[in-house]
Amino acid sequence: MLELKNIDTYYGNIQALRDVNITVREGEIITLIGANGAGKTTTLMTICGVVPARNGEVLFQGKPITRLSADKIVRMGICQVPEGRLIFPDLTVRENLDMGAFLRDDKSGVDSDLEQVFTLFPILKERRRQLGGTLSGGEQQMLAISRALMARPKVLLLDEPSLGLAPLIIRQIFDIIKQINRESNTTIFLVEQNANQALKVANRGYVMENGRITLEDACDKLLANDAVKKAYLGL
């Protein structure tokens, strides 16, 4: 469904991604794990057209999207929950959610999705008139996920959803991610430093080091892999 072929991405003269190949099949959860600065966020930004690849190709449902602008890529059904959540601080919770549906014209569909999101996260319904910046970290993460869902994505890209959250909230967030995948058959691309959690949720995993993919396998095999255990699971 989503395919990265021999991607090289640069920031100015500095190469951040080297010959990255990733395939995501419809309906699966894949995870990309790696240390700080490995290039995980850049991979997502390249998919979304924010930092376009210099070489290589990104295919979505067989069509090249490498050179498309960010808004066209969102329109095709690829949405990102970015690192640090990036809530619009001075918009209300409700307005933040409206921004997620920015490109949609089907008002009735948007309204029913809004109801669904409020069922998924009742706390957001309670706080819908509050400014986004006044929410706690966990609530902001819920809002960020909801905002992406409001676009009714085919592929949901999540960048470190567990960052800075309490363990209880982290478990809740991961449960929701599984639920979204199961119930609406949304394909999920999960980037995580929390390798242990990510590998338990996902079907397949990729390991990234210094801008290269160094390992790819089913998650249960990666969990048992000695190198992964040592470097990422702290065992």
Binding site: C48, V50, S69, A70, D71, V74, R75, C79, Q80, P82, L86, I87, F88, P89, D90, L91, E95, D98, M99, G100, F102, L103, R147, A151
Partner: peptide
């Protein structure tokens, strides 16, 4: 809609891009 897009862009340009604001 444009007004909301303007406010969103002013608050966080990168995120505005990611929700599809031109």
């Amino acid at each position: 809609r444009m007004g909301k897009a303007m406010r969103a862009t002013a608050q966080n340009r990168k995120m505005a891009l990611l929700v599809g604001v031109n």
